[in-house]
Computed example of a mutant assay.
Amino acid sequence: MYTKPVCGWVFCLGCCLWLLSGSVQAAPRGQKDTGILTATRLADADADGVSDGSDLCPGTPVGMAVNAYGCPLSQSSCDYTTSTVTLLSAGGSAGSTVTTRYVLANNVGTILQISPTASFTGLTGTATYMAVAITYDGVVTNLSVGSTLSAVSASCLDLSDALVFKACIAPVPTCDYQVGATIVLTSAGGSTGAGVKTSYVLTDATGKLISVSATPSFSTMGLVAGAYSAYGLTYTDDASIVNLVANGTATLSQVTASCLIVSTGLSLTLCGGCKTSCVPILISRLR
């Protein structure tokens, strides 16, 4: 029987609960205990179908869908919206030959990241994760990205309870132009000849006309970062065109003429002007 300090871990999103530590006798995770301990490990206190000895998420609500480790397969609300997640931990064993690694796994227990600290980076999209602290003594096997938590083994090994969290990271927009720069586009097609005119318009995300130009280029001075669309309009030059004005209220759908053709919209994304900080220019008289 292996005697070791309580290898208890607590992960939390905003606070840390510290565990009382002491000395108990217990077999390393994955090794079979004898006598009454065997019966305890076969128990399933939260009735999720995973025995307490293998359950990394004790106390799961009844009826919740869980994975092979007794942890929820999904979370309804988002805990993080950043690509880097830093957690707090408490407890665990220590010693000259004891190693602790923090593991980020997906919702079915496949290892995604391994870190010496409770911090994980590069998260993308929306997903539910499991964070687990693994403490071992000696040589460890299968502690690698792509392996599963259940495949990790060592002569002395302990896994913390898992912290299940959901990260929702919005995709970083691809900037076509910076606010303050001039949008310069090219056009092809359209009708030409006497009595025919072409204008180009820039609309915001609601379809309102932001700019009207005789050429496929627009100033972005005074605009805010966001989504825009550019269109080419060809129409009869007989003064029948109405609402072709960037007055902040007219929309593209309100533009009419005796003969009007509107091109397919070209989506554009404007990003904030200065990427870091804007330093004002000081002008002084030369003496």
Rank of each mutant, 00 (worst) to 15 (best):
S115C: 09
G35N: 07
T100G: 03
S150M: 06
G207C: 14
Y102E: 03
C71F: 02
A90H: 03
P216L: 04
A162P: 01
N247R: 04
D33F: 07
S253P: 06
W18G: 09
L209K: 00
K4A: 10
S258I: 02
Q25E: 15
L73I: 08
P173E: 05
M1N: 08
K32H: 04
C71K: 00
G30K: 14
S263I: 03
G8Q: 07
S77D: 12
G35M: 13
Y231T: 01
S144G: 09
Q254F: 14
D137Q: 12
S150V: 04
T249Y: 15
G265D: 05
T249D: 10
L260W: 02
L286H: 05
D137M: 07
A90Q: 15
I281G: 06
T100Q: 09
A194C: 12
T38K: 12
L270V: 12
S253Q: 12
T198V: 11
F120C: 05
Y231E: 02
G14D: 09
T60I: 14
S74Q: 14
Q31W: 07
D158V: 07
T182M: 15
L37K: 15
S160W: 00
S263W: 03
T251N: 12
Y69A: 06
I281L: 09
A225H: 12
R29A: 13
Y228Q: 11
A26C: 04
L270F: 13
R29T: 06
V255M: 05
C16I: 04
M1C: 10
C259S: 15
V140D: 03
S144M: 11
N67M: 04
S187N: 14
A162G: 04
C16K: 11
